[in-house]
Design a protein around this nucleic acid. Structure first.
Lengths: 203, 203
DNA sequence: CCGTTAACGGCACCCGAGTTCCTTTAAGCT
DNA sequence: AGCTTAAAGGAACTCGGGTGCCGTTAACGG
Protein backbone atom coordinates (compact mmCIF):
# COMPACT_ATOMS: atom_id res chain seq x y z
CA UNK A 1 0.00 0.00 0.00
CA UNK A 2 1.17 3.52 -0.74
CA UNK A 3 2.58 5.26 2.29
CA UNK A 4 0.29 7.90 3.78
CA UNK A 5 -2.83 6.78 1.93
CA UNK A 6 -6.19 7.78 3.42
CA UNK A 7 -8.83 5.11 3.99
CA UNK A 8 -12.31 6.53 3.79
CA UNK A 9 -13.89 3.24 2.74
CA UNK A 10 -15.68 0.42 4.54
CA UNK A 11 -15.23 0.53 8.28
CA UNK A 12 -14.28 4.20 8.54
CA UNK A 13 -17.39 5.29 6.66
CA UNK A 14 -19.53 2.95 8.75
CA UNK A 15 -18.10 4.38 11.96
CA UNK A 16 -18.67 7.93 10.77
CA UNK A 17 -22.28 7.22 9.87
CA UNK A 18 -22.97 5.48 13.17
CA UNK A 19 -21.35 8.24 15.21
CA UNK A 20 -23.15 11.04 13.37
CA UNK A 21 -26.50 9.30 13.85
CA UNK A 22 -25.75 8.71 17.53
CA UNK A 23 -24.65 12.33 17.89
CA UNK A 24 -27.92 13.55 16.42
CA UNK A 25 -29.87 11.28 18.79
CA UNK A 26 -27.90 12.49 21.78
CA UNK A 27 -28.27 16.14 20.76
CA UNK A 28 -32.04 15.73 20.46
CA UNK A 29 -32.22 14.08 23.89
CA UNK A 30 -29.81 16.15 25.96
CA UNK A 31 -29.07 19.28 23.94
CA UNK A 32 -25.69 20.71 23.02
CA UNK A 33 -24.45 21.60 26.48
CA UNK A 34 -25.04 18.21 28.09
CA UNK A 35 -23.54 16.24 25.26
CA UNK A 36 -20.95 13.67 26.30
CA UNK A 37 -18.72 12.18 23.63
CA UNK A 38 -18.37 8.97 25.65
CA UNK A 39 -22.17 8.64 25.55
CA UNK A 40 -22.15 9.14 21.79
CA UNK A 41 -19.52 6.43 21.46
CA UNK A 42 -21.65 4.05 23.53
CA UNK A 43 -24.75 4.68 21.40
CA UNK A 44 -22.78 4.22 18.20
CA UNK A 45 -21.18 1.05 19.61
CA UNK A 46 -17.81 2.54 18.87
CA UNK A 47 -14.69 3.03 20.94
CA UNK A 48 -14.63 6.21 23.03
CA UNK A 49 -11.08 6.85 21.84
CA UNK A 50 -12.19 6.84 18.21
CA UNK A 51 -14.69 9.63 18.76
CA UNK A 52 -12.19 11.76 20.66
CA UNK A 53 -9.49 11.15 18.07
CA UNK A 54 -11.55 11.91 14.97
CA UNK A 55 -13.71 14.75 16.22
CA UNK A 56 -12.00 15.94 19.38
CA UNK A 57 -14.72 18.19 20.76
CA UNK A 58 -18.49 18.37 20.81
CA UNK A 59 -18.40 21.40 18.53
CA UNK A 60 -16.18 19.58 16.04
CA UNK A 61 -18.58 16.67 15.92
CA UNK A 62 -21.54 18.98 15.36
CA UNK A 63 -19.67 20.75 12.59
CA UNK A 64 -19.21 17.43 10.80
CA UNK A 65 -22.86 16.58 11.41
CA UNK A 66 -23.81 19.86 9.76
CA UNK A 67 -21.64 19.17 6.74
CA UNK A 68 -23.49 15.88 6.43
CA UNK A 69 -26.88 17.59 6.76
CA UNK A 70 -25.98 20.16 4.12
CA UNK A 71 -25.67 17.42 1.53
CA UNK A 72 -29.34 16.52 1.77
CA UNK A 73 -31.23 19.51 0.33
CA UNK A 74 -34.98 19.40 -0.07
CA UNK A 75 -36.14 20.56 -3.51
CA UNK A 76 -37.64 24.01 -3.84
CA UNK A 77 -41.22 24.69 -4.85
CA UNK A 78 -42.19 25.95 -8.32
CA UNK A 79 -45.81 26.99 -8.30
CA UNK A 80 -45.48 29.84 -10.78
CA UNK A 81 -46.46 32.41 -8.14
CA UNK A 82 -44.00 34.18 -5.87
CA UNK A 83 -46.22 34.26 -2.82
CA UNK A 84 -47.07 30.57 -3.13
CA UNK A 85 -43.40 29.62 -3.53
CA UNK A 86 -42.44 31.70 -0.50
CA UNK A 87 -45.30 30.26 1.49
CA UNK A 88 -44.10 26.77 0.63
CA UNK A 89 -40.62 27.70 1.80
CA UNK A 90 -41.95 29.24 5.00
CA UNK A 91 -44.03 26.18 5.80
CA UNK A 92 -41.09 23.89 5.11
CA UNK A 93 -38.94 25.88 7.55
CA UNK A 94 -41.75 26.12 10.09
CA UNK A 95 -42.46 22.39 10.00
CA UNK A 96 -38.77 21.57 10.26
CA UNK A 97 -38.32 23.78 13.32
CA UNK A 98 -41.50 22.53 15.00
CA UNK A 99 -40.60 18.87 14.49
CA UNK A 100 -39.29 17.60 17.85
CA UNK A 101 -36.25 15.89 16.39
CA UNK A 102 -35.34 18.37 13.66
CA UNK A 103 -36.12 21.38 15.84
CA UNK A 104 -33.89 20.21 18.67
CA UNK A 105 -31.18 19.40 16.17
CA UNK A 106 -31.30 22.86 14.66
CA UNK A 107 -31.21 24.54 18.04
CA UNK A 108 -28.18 22.46 19.01
CA UNK A 109 -26.42 23.20 15.77
CA UNK A 110 -27.00 26.93 16.04
CA UNK A 111 -25.68 26.84 19.59
CA UNK A 112 -22.60 24.98 18.43
CA UNK A 113 -22.00 27.68 15.82
CA UNK A 114 -21.80 30.33 18.54
CA UNK A 115 -19.14 28.31 20.39
CA UNK A 116 -16.90 27.02 17.63
CA UNK A 117 -15.63 28.69 14.48
CA UNK A 118 -15.63 25.46 12.45
CA UNK A 119 -19.25 24.83 13.40
CA UNK A 120 -20.07 28.44 12.53
CA UNK A 121 -18.48 28.06 9.11
CA UNK A 122 -20.35 24.81 8.53
CA UNK A 123 -23.61 26.47 9.52
CA UNK A 124 -23.05 29.39 7.17
CA UNK A 125 -22.34 26.97 4.33
CA UNK A 126 -25.47 25.02 5.22
CA UNK A 127 -27.69 28.09 5.00
CA UNK A 128 -25.94 29.34 1.89
CA UNK A 129 -26.79 26.03 0.21
CA UNK A 130 -30.39 26.08 1.41
CA UNK A 131 -30.87 29.67 0.25
CA UNK A 132 -29.26 29.00 -3.13
CA UNK A 133 -31.78 26.20 -3.63
CA UNK A 134 -34.69 28.65 -3.32
CA UNK A 135 -33.40 31.83 -4.98
CA UNK A 136 -34.68 30.75 -8.43
CA UNK A 137 -38.23 31.30 -7.13
CA UNK A 138 -37.42 34.96 -6.65
CA UNK A 139 -35.47 35.27 -9.88
CA UNK A 140 -38.40 33.86 -11.82
CA UNK A 141 -40.71 36.35 -10.09
CA UNK A 142 -38.40 39.15 -11.26
CA UNK A 143 -38.60 37.82 -14.84
CA UNK A 144 -42.40 37.66 -14.55
CA UNK A 145 -42.21 41.32 -13.41
CA UNK A 146 -43.79 40.43 -10.08
CA UNK A 147 -40.77 42.07 -8.45
CA UNK A 148 -38.55 45.02 -9.41
CA UNK A 149 -35.42 44.28 -11.45
CA UNK A 150 -32.25 43.95 -9.38
CA UNK A 151 -34.02 42.40 -6.40
CA UNK A 152 -31.53 40.53 -4.17
CA UNK A 153 -33.03 37.04 -4.32
CA UNK A 154 -31.05 35.63 -1.39
CA UNK A 155 -32.14 38.51 0.81
CA UNK A 156 -35.80 37.75 0.07
CA UNK A 157 -35.39 34.10 1.05
CA UNK A 158 -33.56 35.08 4.21
CA UNK A 159 -36.39 37.48 5.04
CA UNK A 160 -38.82 34.56 4.94
CA UNK A 161 -36.83 32.46 7.42
CA UNK A 162 -35.77 35.19 9.80
CA UNK A 163 -39.07 35.72 11.67
CA UNK A 164 -39.45 31.96 12.13
CA UNK A 165 -36.01 31.55 13.67
CA UNK A 166 -36.65 34.62 15.78
CA UNK A 167 -39.68 32.86 17.25
CA UNK A 168 -37.76 29.63 17.76
CA UNK A 169 -34.83 31.14 19.64
CA UNK A 170 -35.77 34.55 20.99
CA UNK A 171 -39.39 35.39 21.51
CA UNK A 172 -40.80 31.93 22.22
CA UNK A 173 -44.03 32.86 20.43
CA UNK A 174 -45.94 30.01 18.77
CA UNK A 175 -44.37 28.78 15.58
CA UNK A 176 -47.54 27.88 13.68
CA UNK A 177 -48.74 28.00 10.10
CA UNK A 178 -50.12 31.49 10.59
CA UNK A 179 -46.62 32.65 11.51
CA UNK A 180 -45.24 30.94 8.41
CA UNK A 181 -47.87 32.61 6.24
CA UNK A 182 -47.09 36.02 7.66
CA UNK A 183 -43.36 35.49 7.17
CA UNK A 184 -43.89 34.70 3.48
CA UNK A 185 -46.28 37.61 2.96
CA UNK A 186 -44.00 40.01 4.78
CA UNK A 187 -41.02 39.10 2.62
CA UNK A 188 -43.10 39.33 -0.55
CA UNK A 189 -44.54 42.73 0.39
CA UNK A 190 -41.09 44.11 1.24
CA UNK A 191 -39.64 42.73 -2.00
CA UNK A 192 -42.45 44.25 -4.07
CA UNK A 193 -41.80 47.60 -2.36
CA UNK A 194 -38.22 47.43 -3.62
CA UNK A 195 -36.57 47.07 -0.21
CA UNK A 196 -34.18 44.41 -1.51
CA UNK A 197 -32.92 46.25 -4.60
CA UNK A 198 -29.41 47.73 -4.48
CA UNK A 199 -30.88 51.00 -5.76
CA UNK A 200 -32.81 51.23 -2.52
CA UNK A 201 -31.21 53.63 -0.20
CA UNK A 202 -28.60 53.93 2.36
CA UNK A 203 -30.48 57.26 2.73
CA UNK B 1 -34.76 38.24 64.58
CA UNK B 2 -37.88 36.72 63.11
CA UNK B 3 -37.35 33.10 62.20
CA UNK B 4 -37.06 32.48 58.46
CA UNK B 5 -36.51 36.10 57.47
CA UNK B 6 -34.77 36.75 54.18
CA UNK B 7 -31.79 39.09 54.04
CA UNK B 8 -31.46 40.79 50.68
CA UNK B 9 -29.61 43.79 52.07
CA UNK B 10 -26.00 44.85 52.36
CA UNK B 11 -23.60 42.02 51.77
CA UNK B 12 -25.97 39.76 49.84
CA UNK B 13 -26.80 42.50 47.33
CA UNK B 14 -23.11 43.37 47.00
CA UNK B 15 -22.25 39.74 46.30
CA UNK B 16 -25.01 39.42 43.73
CA UNK B 17 -23.87 42.54 41.89
CA UNK B 18 -20.23 41.43 41.90
CA UNK B 19 -21.08 37.93 40.69
CA UNK B 20 -23.38 39.13 37.90
CA UNK B 21 -20.75 41.55 36.66
CA UNK B 22 -18.09 38.85 36.80
CA UNK B 23 -20.43 36.44 35.01
CA UNK B 24 -20.97 38.94 32.20
CA UNK B 25 -17.21 39.45 31.87
CA UNK B 26 -16.59 35.71 31.78
CA UNK B 27 -19.36 35.14 29.24
CA UNK B 28 -17.91 37.80 26.94
CA UNK B 29 -14.45 36.25 27.22
CA UNK B 30 -15.16 32.53 27.07
CA UNK B 31 -18.75 32.16 25.88
CA UNK B 32 -21.52 30.15 27.47
CA UNK B 33 -20.11 26.68 26.96
CA UNK B 34 -16.71 27.32 28.53
CA UNK B 35 -18.06 29.16 31.53
CA UNK B 36 -16.73 27.95 34.87
CA UNK B 37 -18.52 29.00 38.03
CA UNK B 38 -15.31 28.74 40.02
CA UNK B 39 -13.76 31.25 37.61
CA UNK B 40 -16.71 33.59 38.08
CA UNK B 41 -16.28 33.32 41.85
CA UNK B 42 -12.59 34.16 41.55
CA UNK B 43 -13.30 37.24 39.39
CA UNK B 44 -16.00 38.41 41.79
CA UNK B 45 -13.68 37.80 44.77
CA UNK B 46 -16.37 35.64 46.28
CA UNK B 47 -16.38 32.13 47.69
CA UNK B 48 -16.86 29.38 45.11
CA UNK B 49 -19.41 27.75 47.39
CA UNK B 50 -21.54 30.90 47.38
CA UNK B 51 -21.90 30.89 43.62
CA UNK B 52 -22.79 27.20 43.52
CA UNK B 53 -25.28 27.54 46.37
CA UNK B 54 -27.13 30.61 45.08
CA UNK B 55 -27.16 29.91 41.34
CA UNK B 56 -26.29 26.25 41.06
CA UNK B 57 -25.66 26.05 37.33
CA UNK B 58 -24.32 28.24 34.56
CA UNK B 59 -27.79 28.50 33.04
CA UNK B 60 -29.29 29.56 36.35
CA UNK B 61 -26.70 32.30 36.69
CA UNK B 62 -27.36 33.53 33.15
CA UNK B 63 -31.10 33.55 33.83
CA UNK B 64 -30.51 35.86 36.79
CA UNK B 65 -28.19 38.01 34.71
CA UNK B 66 -30.96 38.36 32.13
CA UNK B 67 -33.50 39.37 34.75
CA UNK B 68 -31.03 42.05 35.77
CA UNK B 69 -30.53 43.19 32.15
CA UNK B 70 -34.30 43.37 31.58
CA UNK B 71 -34.58 46.12 34.18
CA UNK B 72 -32.47 48.53 32.15
CA UNK B 73 -34.54 49.41 29.09
CA UNK B 74 -33.36 52.03 26.62
CA UNK B 75 -36.02 54.58 25.71
CA UNK B 76 -37.76 54.27 22.35
CA UNK B 77 -37.53 56.86 19.59
CA UNK B 78 -40.34 59.28 18.76
CA UNK B 79 -39.59 61.05 15.50
CA UNK B 80 -43.18 61.35 14.30
CA UNK B 81 -42.49 59.08 11.32
CA UNK B 82 -42.90 55.31 11.37
CA UNK B 83 -39.97 54.53 9.12
CA UNK B 84 -37.65 56.79 11.10
CA UNK B 85 -38.75 55.24 14.42
CA UNK B 86 -38.25 51.74 13.04
CA UNK B 87 -34.89 52.69 11.60
CA UNK B 88 -33.85 54.01 15.01
CA UNK B 89 -34.92 50.72 16.58
CA UNK B 90 -33.10 48.70 13.94
CA UNK B 91 -29.91 50.69 14.41
CA UNK B 92 -30.12 50.32 18.17
CA UNK B 93 -30.42 46.55 17.82
CA UNK B 94 -27.72 46.41 15.16
CA UNK B 95 -25.27 48.44 17.23
CA UNK B 96 -25.99 46.37 20.31
CA UNK B 97 -25.35 43.11 18.49
CA UNK B 98 -22.20 44.39 16.77
CA UNK B 99 -20.71 45.72 20.00
CA UNK B 100 -18.09 43.17 21.12
CA UNK B 101 -19.25 43.03 24.71
CA UNK B 102 -23.00 43.32 24.22
CA UNK B 103 -23.01 41.06 21.18
CA UNK B 104 -21.15 38.28 22.95
CA UNK B 105 -23.42 38.66 25.93
CA UNK B 106 -26.53 38.34 23.77
CA UNK B 107 -25.20 35.30 22.00
CA UNK B 108 -24.41 33.66 25.34
CA UNK B 109 -27.78 34.49 26.75
CA UNK B 110 -29.64 33.10 23.72
CA UNK B 111 -27.59 29.93 23.97
CA UNK B 112 -28.44 29.62 27.65
CA UNK B 113 -32.13 29.91 26.78
CA UNK B 114 -31.89 26.86 24.52
CA UNK B 115 -30.39 24.83 27.38
CA UNK B 116 -32.39 25.86 30.42
CA UNK B 117 -36.09 26.58 30.82
CA UNK B 118 -35.57 29.28 33.44
CA UNK B 119 -33.15 31.08 31.16
CA UNK B 120 -35.63 30.68 28.29
CA UNK B 121 -38.40 32.21 30.36
CA UNK B 122 -36.14 35.07 31.42
CA UNK B 123 -35.20 35.69 27.78
CA UNK B 124 -38.82 35.76 26.66
CA UNK B 125 -39.64 38.26 29.40
CA UNK B 126 -36.65 40.34 28.36
CA UNK B 127 -37.80 40.56 24.74
CA UNK B 128 -41.42 41.12 25.76
CA UNK B 129 -40.26 44.14 27.77
CA UNK B 130 -38.09 45.48 24.96
CA UNK B 131 -40.88 45.08 22.42
CA UNK B 132 -43.46 46.68 24.69
CA UNK B 133 -41.17 49.71 24.94
CA UNK B 134 -41.32 50.22 21.16
CA UNK B 135 -44.89 49.27 20.23
CA UNK B 136 -46.19 52.85 20.79
CA UNK B 137 -44.25 53.87 17.65
CA UNK B 138 -46.41 51.53 15.63
CA UNK B 139 -49.62 52.45 17.43
CA UNK B 140 -49.00 56.12 16.72
CA UNK B 141 -48.41 55.29 13.07
CA UNK B 142 -51.80 53.55 13.01
CA UNK B 143 -53.41 56.65 14.50
CA UNK B 144 -51.69 58.82 11.88
CA UNK B 145 -53.18 56.41 9.30
CA UNK B 146 -49.70 55.45 8.11
CA UNK B 147 -50.69 51.84 8.78
CA UNK B 148 -53.98 49.96 8.52
CA UNK B 149 -56.16 49.75 11.64
CA UNK B 150 -55.73 46.57 13.67
CA UNK B 151 -52.02 46.24 12.87
CA UNK B 152 -50.27 44.00 15.43
CA UNK B 153 -47.70 46.45 16.79
CA UNK B 154 -45.55 43.85 18.53
CA UNK B 155 -45.32 41.81 15.34
CA UNK B 156 -43.99 44.83 13.46
CA UNK B 157 -41.29 45.44 16.06
CA UNK B 158 -40.34 41.76 15.99
CA UNK B 159 -40.15 41.92 12.21
CA UNK B 160 -37.52 44.66 12.51
CA UNK B 161 -35.29 42.63 14.83
CA UNK B 162 -35.68 39.23 13.21
CA UNK B 163 -33.42 39.74 10.16
CA UNK B 164 -30.70 41.21 12.35
CA UNK B 165 -30.67 38.26 14.74
CA UNK B 166 -30.80 35.95 11.73
CA UNK B 167 -27.56 37.49 10.52
CA UNK B 168 -25.97 37.34 13.96
CA UNK B 169 -26.70 33.67 14.58
CA UNK B 170 -27.45 31.89 11.33
CA UNK B 171 -26.22 33.37 8.08
CA UNK B 172 -23.11 35.16 9.32
CA UNK B 173 -23.68 37.96 6.79
CA UNK B 174 -22.38 41.40 7.74
CA UNK B 175 -24.47 43.16 10.36
CA UNK B 176 -24.06 46.73 9.14
CA UNK B 177 -26.18 49.85 8.95
CA UNK B 178 -27.43 48.90 5.51
CA UNK B 179 -28.83 45.68 6.97
CA UNK B 180 -30.49 47.67 9.76
CA UNK B 181 -32.00 50.04 7.21
CA UNK B 182 -33.38 47.19 5.14
CA UNK B 183 -34.81 45.50 8.22
CA UNK B 184 -36.72 48.65 9.15
CA UNK B 185 -37.92 49.25 5.60
CA UNK B 186 -38.98 45.65 5.18
CA UNK B 187 -41.05 45.68 8.34
CA UNK B 188 -42.64 49.01 7.39
CA UNK B 189 -43.48 47.82 3.86
CA UNK B 190 -45.04 44.61 5.16
CA UNK B 191 -47.02 46.49 7.79
CA UNK B 192 -48.32 48.99 5.20
CA UNK B 193 -49.38 46.05 3.03
CA UNK B 194 -51.52 44.80 5.92
CA UNK B 195 -49.53 41.64 6.60
CA UNK B 196 -49.75 42.16 10.36
CA UNK B 197 -53.51 42.79 10.63
CA UNK B 198 -55.65 39.97 12.07
CA UNK B 199 -57.95 40.39 9.05
CA UNK B 200 -55.07 39.23 6.88
CA UNK B 201 -55.53 35.74 5.85
CA UNK B 202 -54.67 32.26 6.83
CA UNK B 203 -55.78 31.82 3.19
C1' DC C 1 -3.87 -13.75 -1.56
C1' DC C 2 -0.55 -11.26 1.39
C1' DG C 3 1.87 -7.41 3.59
C1' DT C 4 1.63 -2.83 5.21
C1' DT C 5 -0.28 0.44 8.10
C1' DA C 6 -4.37 3.63 8.77
C1' DA C 7 -7.80 3.44 11.79
C1' DC C 8 -10.34 1.29 15.62
C1' DG C 9 -10.80 -0.58 20.54
C1' DG C 10 -9.90 -1.28 25.49
C1' DC C 11 -7.89 -0.01 29.67
C1' DA C 12 -5.69 2.73 33.11
C1' DC C 13 -4.73 7.22 34.41
C1' DC C 14 -5.41 12.24 35.42
C1' DC C 15 -7.38 16.43 36.55
C1' DG C 16 -10.60 19.82 37.64
C1' DA C 17 -15.59 21.06 37.96
C1' DG C 18 -18.96 20.39 41.31
C1' DT C 19 -20.23 18.75 46.16
C1' DT C 20 -19.97 18.34 51.18
C1' DC C 21 -19.15 19.88 55.70
C1' DC C 22 -17.98 22.92 58.92
C1' DT C 23 -16.52 27.69 60.44
C1' DT C 24 -16.97 32.61 60.22
C1' DT C 25 -19.25 36.90 59.21
C1' DA C 26 -22.68 40.32 59.41
C1' DA C 27 -27.87 41.49 58.40
C1' DG C 28 -31.85 42.41 60.81
C1' DC C 29 -34.77 42.35 64.92
C1' DT C 30 -35.54 43.75 69.81
C1' DA D 1 -25.76 47.26 72.06
C1' DG D 2 -26.70 42.29 71.91
C1' DC D 3 -28.58 38.06 70.09
C1' DT D 4 -30.00 35.07 66.51
C1' DT D 5 -29.31 32.95 62.35
C1' DA D 6 -29.15 33.80 57.15
C1' DA D 7 -25.70 33.87 54.21
C1' DA D 8 -20.70 33.80 52.92
C1' DG D 9 -16.12 31.54 53.12
C1' DG D 10 -12.61 27.86 53.20
C1' DA D 11 -10.81 23.36 52.48
C1' DA D 12 -11.03 18.63 51.68
C1' DC D 13 -13.18 15.12 48.81
C1' DT D 14 -15.51 12.84 44.87
C1' DC D 15 -16.30 11.30 40.44
C1' DG D 16 -16.74 11.34 35.62
C1' DG D 17 -15.26 13.59 31.28
C1' DG D 18 -11.15 13.68 28.62
C1' DT D 19 -6.24 11.73 27.57
C1' DG D 20 -2.32 8.48 26.60
C1' DC D 21 -0.67 4.11 25.61
C1' DC D 22 -0.54 0.06 23.22
C1' DG D 23 -2.52 -4.04 21.17
C1' DT D 24 -5.94 -5.43 17.40
C1' DT D 25 -8.51 -5.10 13.15
C1' DA D 26 -9.29 -4.55 8.43
C1' DA D 27 -8.78 -1.27 4.24
C1' DC D 28 -6.09 -0.70 0.23
C1' DG D 29 -2.22 -1.73 -3.11
C1' DG D 30 0.43 -5.07 -5.44
Amino acid sequence: MTVGAIRPGGRTARVRAAVLRAAADALVEHGFDRLDLADVARRAEVGKTTVYRRWGTVAGLVADLLADMAEQSSPRADTGSLIEDLRANARLVQRTLVDPRQGALFRAVIVAATCDSRAAEALHRFYAARIAEWTPCVEQAVQRAELPAGTDAAEVIRAVSAPLYYRLLMSGDPLDEAAASRAAEGAAAAARAGVYTPANGRN
